[in-house]
Design a binder for these strands. Structure first.
Lengths: 353, 353
DNA sequence: GGTTAGCACTCACAAAGCAAGAGTGCTAAC
DNA sequence: GTTAGCACTCTTGCTTTGTGAGTGCTAACC
């Protein structure tokens, strides 16, 4: 006679008490990683309710999709939906210890404008502060504005192209030059290029380079090489510009005590592709939290990826973030990411004046 | 009455048959990772001996220190000493498949003279060919000979110092310049420095820089910054110059199915220090094989580290290597390292002419 | 009607017991 | 010197069993 089979929590609504219970469950689970039962809640968090009542509420919460039950006689664990609610609504802003802020400052004392270095260090600081696997990326190539451009002779047939961008960030690559240009000639070209290209984005640069190439036949070779390089930088420019730190941190969490899971997680990081394309859908919003399945990556289905953007004066954005189990200390992580973002912004812009 | 307690294999000597049996055991164990018993040897490898005889020999080999027994009713596994013998004496040169050589060539097609890139790619190719965790390092900083030196303006107070060395390798770092030197001034300094420093090693450079600094007061600031940088590069220059690839490969081996072991291995790689100091005792010999305890690193006690050097024209050496379980395919690995070393040498020197 | 005590029920997990199998060492015969 | 035979050891995997945590349901309580 199964008449009561309408799916979904029909008639059940979230009320304040359910929310409080849910929050308690999430808090507890984030801390302990063990499924939490009704008795735990009624004892450890004083809500003035018996375990039986909690039980009823938990049953409702499960029906509403906020809780999962590994098996019948275990406690409940929060679902992705629950974390989503938690992040969106319940998160009391993580009161970041001044300790941490200071620690961030500390780590950035010895400074270098080299993008790779800053990025690498940022990721490392993040990982040591949060004890999650961390990442950092520079701004997108095509958004960067050129400040200086210089060719340094390497050998008879090659030179290093150094591009200094608006924020004092540096990119360099080796290009081939077929005619034998000596140091002075390269310098002259550099000056000319800087004059023509300063203040332009990489995308704009493309066109300008083409017209320059047409003007002077003898420099044609070099200019072409540069153009090719810029095109490359624009297309896959981020490829090299992501840094991970503390991949092995994931092994600290019991959800990754399975070697097979750990392996697939770590190889995911090593190939970088999946993470990069995940981060490519960058928002202009300050923080992005992707919980479990929301990442769209199979290997990350019980991970959360929390990212923050930091702003450069020229309007471009870089990204920093951490990857950890869905059971993540979101409050704390968001706090640290925020502080770190500010620090990075001021560090990278300070140089400008 | 224990009269027979003299330690060590008294009276027992290695003979040809023992060696053949030991080799069979090692071969088998490298392949399967399961302790090998007397019966396996007598059946799988046709030595025309019964298991009982093998058993006696194995007992001798154990007494001689070449075999260990996890527990009484398991087979034997080779000891570090056995692998040492194996590597030193028994290794029939790994007949490298031409396939692999070609594969190495293939991977190095798109080339760039940037040290980091070459190093990184080398490590990656190694790791994909051997399926062990791999590493690559450039030559030591202090041995490198300077070819060109150039300052590129970044902002009012900073510049990028690009050092091109003999092999066409590039190092660069950001330095502070306190007086405001414009692009032309920096270029003039660069020319002067190149003239004075070309052909010298980093160590020599130190002294020359000091005397230059004394000559001209106005350039004092820049010169000092450079000197400081060179000193740094000389001291810890290798720090940044090591690349790992495929750390997670270690998880493919059953000896690292224990998460705790895996974690400590991976963090060891992440900090880099231990590995660096291990590699610092570089030999001039082409190949170095460090087996288990020979590494002197606790976390690597059941790993082997196999390294090879590749030579640059200027007489300096770089290092490539793999890290895997002691039960490593030494023959194959040595073959691949050899081929890769040659490839690297020719790649990095070709540029020179 | 919401809350709670009580109780039967489920199910993972750990300890214990058991059988099988692999491998050894030793002895005695070849 | 080699080998067959055998008793013995010890891991490993499987099954059994008990325990405890946690649930859902019902009935009483406020």
């Amino acid at each position: 006679m199964e008449t009561e089979l309408m799916p979904g929590g029909d008639g059940i609504a979230m009320d304040d008490r359910k929310i409080r219970i849910l929050q308690a469950i999430i808090d507890d689970y984030i801390l302990t990683a063990i499924p939490v039962g009704s008795r735990t809640i009624s004892k450890r968090y004083d809500m003035g309710l018996s375990s039986a009542t909690i039980r009823n509420e938990m049953s409702d919460l499960e029906e509403l999709g906020y809780l999962d039950q590994p098996h019948v006689s275990a406690g409940r664990i929060p679902s992705a939906k629950a974390y989503r609610l938690y992040v969106d609504e319940l998160l009391r802003e993580g009161k970041l210890k001044t300790n941490d802020v200071q620690s961030i400052r500390e780590h950035f004392k010895s400074r270098s404008g080299k993008m790779e270095d800053v990025i690498g260090r940022a990721a490392q600081v993040l990982s040591s502060l949060t004890s999650y696997t961390s990442l950092a990326m520079g701004p997108k190539g095509q958004d960067m504005v050129i400040r200086t451009l210089q060719l340094v002779p390497i050998s008879a047939h090659s030179a290093l192209l150094v591009i200094v961008t608006d924020g004092g960030l540096i990119r360099d690559s080796v290009i081939r030059v077929d005619s034998d240009l000596d140091s002075d000639a390269l310098y002259a070209i550099s000056r000319m290029l800087t004059e023509r290209l300063a203040g332009r984005t990489l995308t704009e640069t493309q066109q300008v380079l083409q017209s320059i190439g047409k003007e002077s036949a003898e420099k044609r070779g070099v200019i072409d090489s540069i153009a090719r390089l810029v095109a490359e930088a624009e297309a896959g420019g981020n490829q090299a510009k992501i840094a991970f730190a503390g991949p092995s941190n994931i092994l600290n969490f019991p959800e990754y005590s399975d070697v097979e899971k750990a392996r697939s997680f770590l190889s995911l990081l090593e190939t970088k592709d999946a993470i990069l394309s995940l981060l490519e859908q960058r928002q202009s919003v300050a923080f992005t939290v992707r919980i479990g399945p929301e990442t769209g990556v199979k290997e990350l289905e019980d991970c959360s990826v929390v990212t923050a953007t930091y702003a450069l004066d020229n309007g471009t954005n870089g990204t920093i973030g951490v990857i950890g189990p869905t059971r993540m200390q979101y409050g704390r992580v968001l706090g640290i990411l925020g502080a770190m973002g500010q620090q990075l912004s001021s560090l990278l812009n300070e140089d400008k004046e």
